[in-house]
């Protein structure tokens, strides 16, 4: 991604002022014009898609006037207009900053994608093998991915969590799990 120096230096989002020696490295996310343009283009594409889908809504009783298509159509038109403004701003503006967002860490992607995959597998396993065993394995696996290596924690914590939830929902609230 292109990160023009000019943008970075005018950014209002960085907390560490360039003058003083930083006590810790600056982890805040860097502003990027390319990113802003990409956001606007994606928003535009999605809005157009929404408009097409809105016009395609099948009506049981015939439409006309303020029918079920009307509100989503209006919203997708608003979306298109706002995306165009955003695109214009991305080209013209120099002051885009990213608030207090932090830059992504190298291991971050792995951590997030693995926990998302685990969650998906968990949801599938739950529907197949019931609540108890998948929950214990899932919690344990998450702990391992997040960096816990003590076997005691890896076994006892998941069991405790599974029991607490089972007790609260299944026994107290009578929500079958």
């Amino acid at each position: 991604m292109i990160e023009p120096q000019k943008l970075a230096s005018t950014s209002g989002g960085t907390d560490v002022s360039p003058g003083e020696p930083a006590a810790e490295p600056d982890y805040s996310a860097k502003p990027s014009r390319t990113l802003e343009i990409a956001i606007a283009v994606v928003a535009l594409v999605l809005s157009v898609a929404a408009l097409v889908l809105s016009r395609d809504i099948v009506l049981r009783m015939g439409g006309g006037g303020i029918d079920p298509k009307w509100w989503p159509t209006m919203l997708s038109c608003c979306g298109i207009a706002l995306s165009l403004v955003l695109l214009l701003q991305a080209f013209l503006s120099t002051s885009s900053h990213r608030g207090d967002l932090l830059a992504i860490e190298r291991r971050g992607w792995t951590r997030m994608i693995v926990s998302l995959t685990l969650s998906a597998v968990y949801v599938f396993a739950w529907s197949r093998f019931g609540y108890v065993v998948p929950t214990i394995i899932f919690t344990g696996a998450l702990l391992w991915v997040f960096g816990l290596r003590s076997w005691k924690g890896l076994v006892i914590f998941p069991v405790a969590v599974a029991i607490f939830i089972y007790g609260l929902f299944h026994l107290l609230l009578r929500v079958p799990l």
Partner: peptide
């Protein structure tokens, strides 16, 4: 924390 876990484990065993 570990004491808490040991107690929970005992409860779990009973529960099981």
């Amino acid at each position: 924390l570990s004491k808490f876990f040991m107690q929970s484990a005992a409860a779990a065993a009973l529960f099981g």
